[in-house]
Computed example of a mutant assay.
Amino acid sequence: MTTTEQGPTAVTERALGPDLARGFMLLFIALANSHYFLRGPSVLGGYPQDGSAIDRAATWLIATFVDGRAFPMFGLLFGYGVAQIVRRRTGTAWATRFLLWRRSLVLVVLGLLHATLLYVGDILGAYGVLLFLGVWAIRWKDRWLLIVAVLFLALTALPSDTSLSINADPPDVSMLPPDFGTQVVERLKVTPLIAFLGPIGFATPFLVGLWAGRRRILERPAEHLRLLKATAVAGVTIAVLGAQPVALTLSRVIDRPTGDTLSLVGPLHDVSGTIGGFGYAALIVLIATRIRRGRVTEAIAATGQRSLTCYLMQSVIWTVVFTPYLLDLSDTLTVATTALLAAGAWMLTVFLADRMRRANYRGPFELLIRRITYRTGVSSRPAVRR
């Protein structure tokens, strides 16, 4: 299939770095999502507090390197992808906005179905709402993109004791419904709230992604090595250090803070995680410039190219394993064994994505969103420029 400026990017034209980042970060998404299903006599930040030393070590690792660090990186790549779409369009600004609004509508509808039927913590709806509003930013000057991004980051940094990272509530009935009817009713109550509040946290990485996409920083790393290296070192360092108050609390090394301290450690974890998402993206893109395209690299990149399908496949696994009227393993699995389950789920999606790559198949949900976005029949075979 011959691509045009208005169509989706051909697989042969895709840079390795962003796809590798999406594929690898889906492992972190799996680790971040799955532990919130666990129950116990005492739960803090989604982690049962009665686990073994191995569970405590796993908690520290996930809270330090994963929680609140993977989703900002996806927000960055989401904005980066929007910048790519805008760059490839040859029509008017309004035509581009309508194309992106169609894309946002698909994400909102898909997110609603995903949250209702599979995983209540869906982010697709939030991305859809963010894109619906964010189309007005595609023509902003660079300085306004960065100024507004900083303002949203400052909003995230405001003292608050409502951060998920320090929440002491166990999974509620919307997360672990006793039956399908309750699941639908309860999730329809909370899903719109998540979809409309989520963009507040994703706005900063989205706007920075727009800015980076205009400069093709992740596609042309050789031209931006100094920036990428500085971002990787600073971002990962800030993410690790900023996570320690929460990570040490969740792993029971220190006591849970109270009062004013409690209202500071959650936002610190969230803000450092956003910056860490930038660092992770930069680090993986730098690694992509150094490694050879082997079987493992191609398989993980194929996962990144089909990140939507693979993300939804993970939710199918969580639904089967944790839902009370199915396997109901929320009381059985521990933090450590759930981490192993998450790693296994990710490896399964890597295997399936690589099989799709070998079959020259784009992926069912990627195909769906492209068909609706571009209002044309996009081949299920990856586009190749002749």
Rank of each mutant, 00 (worst) to 15 (best):
M1D: 11
V11L: 14
V11D: 12
T12M: 02
E13L: 11
G23H: 05
L27R: 06
F28Q: 01
A30W: 07
A32Q: 10
A32F: 05
N33H: 11
P41A: 12
S42Y: 03
S42Q: 12
G46D: 04
G46L: 06
Y47F: 14
A58G: 15
I62L: 04
A63K: 00
F65I: 00
V66P: 11
F71K: 02
P72Q: 09
P72V: 02
L76N: 00
G79S: 04
G79Q: 04
A83S: 12
Q84T: 06
V86I: 09
R89N: 11
T96K: 02
F98S: 12
F98C: 06
W101F: 12
L105Q: 05
L107G: 04
V108D: 05
V109P: 00
A115I: 10
Y119N: 04
Y119F: 15
V120G: 02
V120L: 01
G121S: 12
I123W: 04
L124G: 05
G125A: 08
G128I: 03
L130H: 08
W136I: 12
W140G: 00
A149Q: 02
A149W: 03
D161C: 01
N167I: 04
V173W: 08
L176M: 03
P177K: 13
G181A: 14
T182Y: 07
E186L: 00
K189Y: 13
F196D: 01
L197S: 15
G198Q: 06
L207D: 02
V208Q: 01
G209R: 10
A212R: 07
A212H: 01
R214A: 01
I217F: 01
I217Y: 03
E219M: 03
A222G: 13
A222D: 11
R226K: 07
L228E: 11
T237M: 05
A239N: 13
G242A: 07
G242C: 10
A247M: 03
T249G: 03
S251P: 08
T258L: 09
G259F: 00
L262N: 12
G266N: 10
L268A: 15
H269E: 08
D270I: 09
V271L: 05
V271Q: 07
I275Y: 03
G277D: 07
Y280K: 07
Y280R: 04
A281R: 01
L283A: 15
R293Q: 14
T297P: 01
T303M: 13
G304W: 05
R306P: 08
Y311F: 15
M313A: 15
S315E: 14
V316I: 14
I317Q: 06
W318C: 11
T319M: 12
V320P: 04
V321D: 02
F322N: 02
P324A: 09
L327A: 14
S330D: 09
V335T: 15
T337F: 03
A342W: 12
F351L: 15
L352K: 00
A353S: 14
M356Y: 12
N360T: 08
Y361A: 10
F365W: 13
L368E: 12
R370F: 00
R370V: 00
T373Q: 14
R375D: 14
R375L: 13
V378H: 11
V378F: 08
P382I: 00
P382C: 06
A383G: 05
V384N: 03
R385D: 15
R386V: 12
